[in-house]
Structures are given as C-alpha cells and as structure tokens.
C-alpha cells in the first residue's frame, strides 16, 4: 500500500551542519505515529522540510505517492498536508468562527471569491460548526481569539489544521504549555481525530506519546535512529540511553 507520506533519503545541510541526515521515513495510511528525539535532533527541520518552509538539499518527499519535494507550502496544504505549530500561529484579532471559516472556504476554492459576503455559503457554515463541535470550540466561536484561554487556543490551532481537511496531519507538540486543568480536553480531542487522517505527532511529552501513538520513530542528530511499536521503543535500551534517560528528569 502507498504510504500517506514518505521521504526518501531526505537531507538538509546548513553550511557544515547536517540537520536532516538521509532520512527515509514512512507514514502509513491512518497511522498514529510519533516522532521523538532529544533537543536539537532535527525534528523542527524535518517538519519544515515536509511542509515546504525550507527546501531540502537532496532527497524526495512523496504525499500519497505523488512527489511534492518542490511544491510551495500552500500547494502542499491544498494537496492534503496540514500542520499545527509548536507556538500558536493564530489570528488574534479574528474569532474562531472567522478563522475556521477562512480555512474551510480556502479549501473549497472560494477564497478568491470577492463578491459574496463571507458566511452566505451554507455549506461552509455547516462545516465550520461541525469542526467547532468536534474541537469543543462551539461555545467560544464568537470570541476574539486573543481572549481565549490558552487550552482553547491550542484546540483552535489543531482545528484550523483539521479544517484544511488533511489526509496527513502533522502535530507539533500540541500539548506544549497547556495547563494541567485543560490538558485532558486537549488529549481527548487529539485521540478522537478520525481514522482517515494519518497523524504524525512530534512530541516531548512521553505520556502523550505512549497514550496516542502506535508506532514511534526516534530521531537523533538528524538521522533516524530507530523505529518500532510503542512497546519495542519503550523496551529498547539504546533509546533509553539517548532519549528516555534524559527526559526522566525533565
């Protein structure tokens, strides 16, 4: 079966530094896959390569078998590759309603529509409400985003990406900075993502990784160190040495 997302010999060098070193990675369809690694392992660079923020030095990226290596970021999104950001990237002055509506209408190709009033398309509104319910944002749809509690903003961050109707969703530390009281809601929502979306989770939080992921890849010094099921990785003494050992005292 064609994987949802695949990289072949992906490499990125910044001068003398190899930030991504010959990574050949497969994300299967419907996967719940986590990418872990110590700080500076190149996780962010890898995400930026996948989403097209920076071009690779060499290697290829395939989205459902189609080569997207040279595609610009917005076209990758249109092809079904969406991401969330480790630090919220939202529109503070807009409401969640407008934010989600924007993403949905872009996807439906009405973003160029300059004549119809935003919100007059019933189909788009229906979809926005559906997404808001799924991400527990229905009660704050009309609030200014900057006034939302941080946990809700994190949910919106994921909801916007979801509104792009991705086939592959990259979650970059979705729980980062969320206070304990709001954490449960976030984790439950992430766990409830539909199975037709393949998810790659980049995470530091081992509780979240072990509760969510089915497979784990470990990135060390820019290269894929090992990959396996949750149990295999948890039992792997080398992984403990390079990664888990460090994170215990975090």
């Amino acid at each position: 079966m064609t994987p949802a997302l695949e990289t072949i010999g992906l490499q990125k060098r910044f001068g003398g530094l190899t930030a991504t070193d010959n990574v050949s990675f497969r994300l299967e369809k419907g996967a719940r896959h986590a990418l872990i690694g110590p700080n500076g392992a190149g996780k962010t660079t890898f995400i930026n390569l996948l989403t097209g923020v920076i071009p690779p030095t060499s290697g290829r990226i395939l989205l459902e078998g189609a080569d997207i290596t040279r595609l610009c970021p917005e076209l990758r999104v249109q092809r079904g590759l969406a991401r969330t950001f480790q630090i919220n990237q939202l529109f503070p002055a807009m409401t969640p309603l407008e934010t989600l509506g924007l993403a949905v209408s872009e996807r439906k190709g009405s973003g160029r529509d300059w004549w119809r009033v935003f919100g007059s398309d019933r189909e788009i509104v229906d979809e926005v409400v559906g997404i808001a319910q799924r991400f527990r944002l229905a009660d704050v749809l009309d609030e200014r985003t900057s006034n939302l509690p941080y946990g809700k903003q994190r949910l919106l961050e994921i909801a916007v990406a979801f509104a792009c109707e991705p086939r592959v969703l990259l979650l970059d530390e979705p729980a980062a900075g969320v206070p304990e009281a709001e954490r449960h809601e976030l984790l439950a929502t992430v766990a409830a993502l539909p199975r037709d979306v393949s998810v790659l989770l980049i995470e530091h939080d081992m509780d979240l990784v072990f509760s969510f992921a089915e497979r784990i890849s470990v990135l060390v010094n820019g290269g894929l160190f090992t990959e396996g099921t949750v149990d295999e990785i948890a039992a792997d003494p080398r992984v403990r040495a390079v990664y888990l050992g460090e994170s215990v005292d975090e």
């Binding site: 076209l75 999104v77 991401r83 990237q89 529109f91 973003g111 160029r112 300059w114 935003f118 916007v160």
Partner: peptide, 29 residues
Amino acid sequence: RRIVHSPFGLSLRSIRDNSLRARAVGIPV
C-alpha cells in the same frame, strides 16, 4: 465593501495578521 467582507477580504486580513498561518491554511499569499 463587498471585497472586504468577502472570503477574499478575510484572507487578506489573515495575511496581514499572520502570513505564516495564512500559508499554512493553503492561502496563496
């Protein structure tokens, strides 16, 4: 007035506020 209240107008505001995110929802900035 139509332009600024349309989906196109909203996408402009989103670019103004955060072009990184605007690109990430697939807007050809």
